[in-house]
Nucleic acid binder design. Sequence first.
DNA 1: CGTCGTCTTGATTAACCTCAAGAGGTGTGG
DNA 2: CCACACCTCTTGAGGTTAATCAAGACGACG
Lengths: 261, 261
Amino acid sequence: MHQRPDRQALDLFLRRLLLRSPLGLAERDAVLALPATPVSVKGRFDILHPGETTDHACLVADGLLGRFDQMADGGRQTSSLYLPGDMCDLMSVVLPTSGWGIAALSAATVIQVPHAALREAALRHPALAFAFWQDTAVDAAHLAKWVSIIGRSDARTRVAHLFCEIGHRSEQAALGTRAAFRFPITQEQLGETLGLTGIHVNRVLRLLREEGLVEFRSGFVRVTDRARLERAAEFDPAFLLLPEPGPAVAPALPHQLVPQH
Amino acid sequence: MHQRPDRQALDLFLRRLLLRSPLGLAERDAVLALPATPVSVKGRFDILHPGETTDHACLVADGLLGRFDQMADGGRQTSSLYLPGDMCDLMSVVLPTSGWGIAALSAATVIQVPHAALREAALRHPALAFAFWQDTAVDAAHLAKWVSIIGRSDARTRVAHLFCEIGHRSEQAALGTRAAFRFPITQEQLGETLGLTGIHVNRVLRLLREEGLVEFRSGFVRVTDRARLERAAEFDPAFLLLPEPGPAVAPALPHQLVPQH
DNA sequence: CGTCGTCTTGATTAACCTCAAGAGGTGTGG
DNA sequence: CCACACCTCTTGAGGTTAATCAAGACGACG
């Protein structure tokens, strides 16, 4: 735990891959040996501008990142949020030029991992190639879910769903519990994520607080009634495509979860 | 051109991969040699139910398919449309159980390609593994764009954008031109795709017709003013991540487009 | 102590939904 | 061949949700 931040983040990333893909020792070592350059950025900093071409992926070590689309009127829509351990823009390895941007929503530390190294690791270890492909598929699954939430749900459902999702993901990544977790985002940014205005998000937050479902204050979420919150959100954890978390959150690499390969 | 439908569809699929990934002769042969079972379905048939597990991907040979999410109230949200040549649900190779369903929006012919064969081809040919991964990334890019369109655009912009996108994709797949193309979908289904009600889609279609931008009747789109339509849609072809189509659409495999590998 | 970003609340407006009803087109059975 | 059912498209009237406009409070930071 007193490692350098880049190694620690690679640990988190490997942990995330292992949740869904069994990887052998050689593959795991290859992930942990990836070259990694830590970079710290302030909140509201654009790490990648829309339309730009990159030669590296960004692994989140700390803070909150978002993938966004810039609209004609200057407004933004955030399509994905990335927590520590997420390799945001892993798909840029096969799609180095894309239409979206990546922004830090809060102060953040990101680890830059060169495409060349990721590509080489995937070539050397086919199981890794599949794991990377799978990671992109999970990203796509999230986006598909997001389309349906924004397209068909009202504001209250959307806000509730986001809190449920981030709670689950935070717990899965051992960053907090479903009942209480850090979520360093402003109401305005919540609006950009949910397809709402910040003002309306504010009203919905008040409603959810008064209903006793969830409280959001200064970058921190406290779920006061999980059952009712998940019902309000029409939340189904299955969509996260993750195994159910065990009773206790494993502090480090859960070797017992890794099937032999 | 008088081949069996499954070989023809694999041709289209290979063509699509080659648009973005250079593939050698061996890889191309491997794609064309994939086992393929054609199946015909009526419109409104659910090919894959939400939450189900599959062991094959679906290559569209004819008709229109959509990926959808079923909401609690029974309503549907379509998150992606698939035209002939698209391997819909290619990502199911690495994510065999997912939350979405696949439905035929019109009568359609789909070609079932077993996961096992796709996986083996990817293992044998790393370049194919990258091409498949890239195809999933393109899918994700589409979804990300869709999130921002549904989250931030009004109904007129959304409808216009969809027509622009399907027109471009139809032209790219040599199924029609950007100015006139088949689009076998009902107004209700358009609504399910755009996050609107079918009734409101109807009103917007009337508006666009009266403005002289585009006409939609009995499954066919006629663009009457492309420049203004694309402006109304805030459409940027770059988001499709495709090279600009040449002056003429190549009728078969464009060998001259394939870089040596 | 003042400034800036964020949060909060109220009043008004606009976009889209819901409910309702009828028209056109197509396939099917009498 | 006609009658009927069914699906899709069309249009109107009224209601609801969320956006917009406006203003003030709170808190962190220089």
